[in-house]
Amino acid sequence: MSSPSSNPHASAWMRTPERSNMAMLRVMTWISLRLGRPAGRVVLHFIAAYFLLFAPASRRASKAYLRRALGRPVTWADLYRHFFSFAATIHDRIYLINQRFDLFDIEIQGQAALHDARAGDDGLFLIGAHMGSFEVIRALGRQIPGLHVSMVMHEDNAMKINAMLAAINPQASTDIIGLGRIDSMLRVRDKLNQGAMVGMLADRSIGDDALLPTPLLGGVAYLPTGSFRMAALLRRRVVFMVGLYLGGNRYQINFEPLADFSQTPAGQRGAEVEAAVQRYAALLDQYARQAPYNWFNFFDFWQAPAAVSDTQPK
């Protein structure tokens, strides 16, 4: 197995300038909630076209990813569909946060895997990616009694999400645990002990997270290990979750068993974490090929980080 490498530099996705504008978000929220979802979706076509034409770095990254996922040359129509799918999931977040689940056709697959992992009283980790919409998990509350999900993310992102929620719905509440605090691990442990699910998106590294070179979509991806190391340290089960956008008002939520660290001896954690990352990469590969326009990594995801590339032969 390949050994993890450290990543002392800020990740490309964290260095990418934040293009979202709170004023525009408020305008979109007003249009969407006052004029309805069809009117809001008309605006999405202009937004997708704007980014396609005037965000060359994101366009290049989209093309590099889609070439792998589609296994063929990428057209402008493919690029537009990728950008539009991203805009659509962000737009639908407005309705999901406002609990307008009646507007959507949401299919759930693999619910038995989630039920089996929740058999005990302890909580578990739900690990996903920046693929589709994590927000659709809110709809599960209608079908799974007592479901509670706490999201774990970088502190800066947690602040942005809270600001976004306030812009969409001042009464909306979400349980976000920011990483980087002294008590972050303790808060995660407490939530798990209360039987909650702890959600994390594990496809992007956060600064100094250790990375594991892993086969993905015919290449090598450098995936962070932090989410899995946390699950192993806290001895919890892990379930993979993805909410795929299928077009129109259709979503498909998929659950897959990923790892079980509940009985892992301390001496075997490293090997089990690497196995979990590789299983995670295999699931990303599967769903990226199944729904290629759903993975929203608009940066050079395949570039080796400096700490790794500096050690490669010239």
Rank of each mutant, 00 (worst) to 15 (best):
L192W: 15
W295T: 00
D260S: 03
P257R: 09
N249F: 12
G226C: 14
V239N: 11
A202S: 14
P257E: 10
A288P: 02
G199Y: 05
R289S: 11
S173G: 07
F261V: 05
L201D: 15
V273C: 08
T264C: 11
A266P: 05
I177E: 03
E256R: 00
I182H: 01
T214L: 07
G199T: 02
L258K: 04
Q286I: 02
G247Y: 08
A196F: 15
L233G: 05
A276M: 02
A259K: 11
Y280H: 02
Y280G: 03
V242L: 12
G199S: 12
V239W: 09
L258E: 11
Q263T: 12
L283M: 08
L179N: 00
Q278G: 07
A210W: 14
A259V: 00
R229A: 14
S262Q: 13
Q278I: 07
P215E: 09
T264V: 10
A210P: 04
E256D: 06
V198L: 06
L233A: 01
G218C: 15
F296G: 03
T214H: 02
D190H: 15
V239K: 05
A291I: 01
S184D: 02
L216K: 00
L284G: 00
R289M: 09
A202V: 11
V277E: 12
A281S: 06
A275E: 01
A210R: 02
A288D: 10
S262D: 08
G248W: 05
Q278L: 12
L179Y: 04
S262V: 10
M241T: 08
M200L: 13
G247V: 10
I206Y: 13
V242T: 09
L258H: 08
N249Y: 12
D209P: 03
L216F: 02
M230S: 10
D183F: 06
S262A: 15
P257F: 14
L192M: 13
T225Y: 08
D183I: 03
G219V: 01
G199W: 15
A172N: 01
L217H: 02
L165S: 08
F255M: 08
L246F: 09
L216C: 04
L244H: 15
A163P: 00
T225E: 15
A276Q: 00
A163S: 03
A291C: 05
I177H: 00
M164L: 12
T214Q: 08
L233I: 05
L165A: 09
D260G: 01
P213R: 10
M230Q: 12
V239I: 14
A276R: 04
R189N: 06
F296P: 01
F255K: 02
G270R: 04
L246N: 09
G248C: 02
A172Q: 06
L233C: 07
D285A: 04
D183R: 03
G267H: 06
V198E: 04
L186M: 12
A276E: 06
L246M: 13
A202L: 14
R235V: 14
W295S: 01
L201A: 14
V188Y: 05
G243L: 12
S227P: 00
A281D: 04
A210H: 14
